[in-house]
Design a protein around this nucleic acid. Structure first.
Ligand code: SF4
Ligand code: SF4
Lengths: 132, 132
DNA sequence: TTAAATACGACTTTATTGGTCGTATTTAAT
DNA sequence: ATTAAATACGACCAATAAAGTCGTATTTAA
């Protein structure tokens, strides 16, 4: 419990890798997969996802790959995680409202507070902080 | 992802319920299960777990149940979660060291820092904070 | 024309979480 | 003593989520 998914980790690894090479350079999936021992197909899907979200730019054809386009300073960790994995909350009721206990729950408010603190903390962290 | 487990939520609900009734009072599983619509058997196991950990005290036989014994001021959220669910970390390598990527990982340190911040935050919260 | 790359959905496998069942034990009340 | 209301606990099952694979299509430089 309470773990980042592999998908998020792989995405971060890839972004950091690309950032180290500079933002003009095109890096292909295979290179990253081999460098970090990540299943190629899975990394491929993850990078495609990042591309769809406009964080990296695809270059097709031979010698293709991805180029880092987003300014990582401007992307915070909450947004990044949510764009890969959907709503991030300690409990169901933070977004969803079909928890059986919702009406009678006696711990909702304190947990909302904790969740807010974590989100707040993540909001203040840019991806650039993580990749430098 | 990133959710507290039901077990942890049920445990918190139960502790808060018991705390509201005062620490001398004996409360049985069924009462809590009914009040919050929690599956009895599951709550039972959870309370047994809390009892084993010395947080509540079992009273057997008819009119039995549990009595709150631990001082919730002295129990922090990290310890509480870990005693119910085991090691809590954003990534495998925080405790375990058989991640495939461990040797080459380029994001480990930043993630360790984030994880430390969260643990630190949880360390500073007592269960009493959550149940009052 | 070929080959190296991305694109993408369907699928399978594995791990985790959530929940149930059966049976034993304790003990207050009758 | 017997009964019934409770805890104790491990084995089991079900549902969900995460991790990974496959097949096929498309793009494009050489
Ligand atoms: S209502 Fe209570 S039990 Fe349900 S998800 Fe929210 S905090 Fe958890
Ligand atoms: S080594 Fe890197 S990839 Fe592996 S668990 Fe730690 S942070 Fe995640």
């Amino acid at each position: 419990m309470f773990k980042l998914t592999r998908k998020v980790e792989y995405a971060l690894i890839a972004l950091r890798h690309m950032q180290n090479k500079g933002s003009e350079v095109v890096t292909n999936t295979k290179e990253i997969a081999e460098a970090y021992d990540i299943p190629v197909q899975l990394l491929a899907k993850t990078l495609q996802h990042l591309a769809r979200e406009g964080i990296i730019d695809p270059v097709q054809g031979p010698h293709g790959g991805y180029r880092l386009t987003a300014n990582l300073e401007d992307l915070n960790l909450t947004d990044f995680i949510e764009l890969l994995e959907g709503p991030m909350g300690l409990m169901d009721c933070y977004f969803d409202s079909n928890c059986e206990q919702l009406g009678v729950c006696n711990i909702r408010l304190p947990i909302v507070k904790i969740n807010d603190s974590i989100r707040n903390m993540f909001n203040k962290m840019s991806l650039a902080d993580l990749t430098k």
